[in-house]
């Protein structure tokens, strides 16, 4: 193990040979990219979501790759750029998750996405900014790749 780097849990300790040469690697977002469809066709939340990688200096990963996230339900939320992208481990370059924020003015929705066993899982933490007194609430939905074999 490399003792020169800091950590607050064992999972963040990495062997000296595992430290990437040349800094943090660019994440591979190919597994996330595409159109994902809610596994519940009767969902009253997000029916589908389009994930679109952006390369070359867009906001997001400092290495120059970012992910556009566009949920569509009863309404099209428009595309927001995921400000943070995540791999499945501290020495991995396999892009598996993201955080993105939608600000509608009256409502902010912090959406976390991650892949697990071929599904995209979207969890949202929703807070009202309109003084309506509605409770901030949590929702989680599951999505499959559009066109995935049945």
């Amino acid at each position: 193990m490399n003792d020169s780097i800091r950590w607050v849990r064992e999972a963040d300790r990495i062997a000296a040979g595992d430290i990437p040469v040349g800094g943090r690697p660019v994440l591979d977002l190919s597994e996330l990219a595409g159109t994902w469809v809610n596994t519940d066709p009767g969902s009253r939340g997000i029916a589908s979501v389009i994930l679109r990688p952006h390369h070359g200096g867009a906001a997001g990963d400092p290495a120059g790759v970012a992910l556009g996230v566009r949920p569509v339900g009863a309404f099209d939320w428009g595309e927001a750029i995921a400000g943070s992208l995540y791999a499945d481990g501290p020495v991995s370059r396999r892009g598996m998750g993201f955080l993105v924020r939608f600000d509608f003015g009256f409502l902010t929705s912090e959406v976390q996405g991650n892949m697990n066993l071929g599904l995209l899982i979207l969890a949202s933490f929703n807070a009202w900014q309109d003084g309506s007194g509605r409770s901030p609430y949590f929702a989680r939905e599951f999505f499959r790749q559009a066109g995935a074999p049945r």
């Binding site: 780097i5 800091r6 963040d12 990495i14 430290i19 990437p20 800094g23 943090r24 690697p25 994440l27 990963d61 943070s84 992208l85 995540y86 791999a87 499945d88 481990g89 501290p90 020495v91 991995s92 370059r93 598996m96 998750g97 991650n114």
Partner: peptide, 12 residues
């Protein structure tokens, strides 16, 4: 999210 220069990848 690592904000040091360790080269570790942000992960979930």
């Amino acid at each position: 999210e690592f904000v040091d220069d360790s080269g570790r990848t942000n992960y979930f």
